[in-house]
Design a protein around this nucleic acid. Sequence first.
DNA 1: GCGGTTACGGAACAAACGTTCCATAACGTG
DNA 2: CACGTTATGGAACGTTTGTTCCGTAACCGC
Lengths: 210, 210
Amino acid sequence: MARPKAFDHDDTVLKAAGLFRRQGYEGTSVRHLLDELGLSASSFYAEFGGKDALYMEALAAHAALEREQLRQGLSGPGTFKAKFAGLLAQLIDELTSVGGTSSLTLRAAVEEAGTKPEVLAFLSRYLTELIEMVGDQIATAAERGELRLRHQPQPVARFLLFGALSLGFVAKVSTDRATLDSYAAMVLDAMPGHATGLPGTPHQTQPPDA
Amino acid sequence: MARPKAFDHDDTVLKAAGLFRRQGYEGTSVRHLLDELGLSASSFYAEFGGKDALYMEALAAHAALEREQLRQGLSGPGTFKAKFAGLLAQLIDELTSVGGTSSLTLRAAVEEAGTKPEVLAFLSRYLTELIEMVGDQIATAAERGELRLRHQPQPVARFLLFGALSLGFVAKVSTDRATLDSYAAMVLDAMPGHATGLPGTPHQTQPPDA
DNA sequence: GCGGTTACGGAACAAACGTTCCATAACGTG
DNA sequence: CACGTTATGGAACGTTTGTTCCGTAACCGC
């Protein structure tokens, strides 16, 4: 028909998600957004409707990515605990690398969920979904005798997920690997499990007195 | 000498801390601040220097309060674990009551620490202090044979403290008591401990299949 | 290569931002 | 009661906020 758009919708949303993740909602002005995304005001409002609408889209896109990463990380072979440990290790890699910033989910929950009902509703739905998904995996792993549970599958799932999210929060103040690794190990201890698959992982961060 | 101030400095700082805690730094405009604190622009700038300076003061005041609450909660008799459990219960009370908002510390870490070096520096110092304080208590409790540790005292202390902070984050999305209680219980499981002091607390959130 | 359609660039908007300034009001002191 | 001092109220400042609007440029189909 006519002149085609010079940008890709989904790419732009993801780029915006990155900005919101690093700088927050209020910390990211539309001007800065336009510069960084490389489009002008008119195109922006025609395509996305406004800052709020773009934020919601970015949040949803980020959530979808996060969920897919989780689902994939828990899909293959191996015990549940080993797979979840792998996900935490991967998360720590991201957090310790340059510009290590926590997930947009965390930021949205802390800064926007209190003010914007739509954000709260979305996060509530999203996190519930994740908890159920992980809870199911935990339940079947427990039935299989892979791990012993001290609590119901869903609370354990919630604990693991929020533990993972708060890793991003821990990383804000102490970025060294050892700290994050030990924190992750303690999160995993919520599932005493028989083994992680690895041969001899003694249940200790370091020797009692070094 | 001359006309006395119509407000109390420390009271005002604490009130400001409350506003920042609920609405964040950027979400709280100076105008709104002045209305809520009941003072005019000239007094405000004469007394506090500006928004940034007041924020830092509010953060420090909040931190001091939080630290004192922690120190006091861990001071009396009883096992360490029981005392920390009491603190978590108290925190959950606050979170489930009206306007249940998480601590300013959490908000500052997530939204401002990335941009403002002074905030990051303060939080880093503050949290390190808390970790050492709690770590010492854990160490002596372990020597006393009160609890068994799977990790070094300091990582355990960090885990407990960040676990407590992230409770405020969990509460953002699910405010019901049972959820928060089970989360707290799993945080406490980082110290398997011989007993909480209570008689028969079975190590299970609910019966395996109800 | 022309016409119709759509995206783009950027100036312009009102509102809100943090901050400054000064005339006025209120107090302690003599 | 009057003076010196200091806090207060509120208008005003220059920027920046999110958003709108319109003239122009770019592309597709014929």
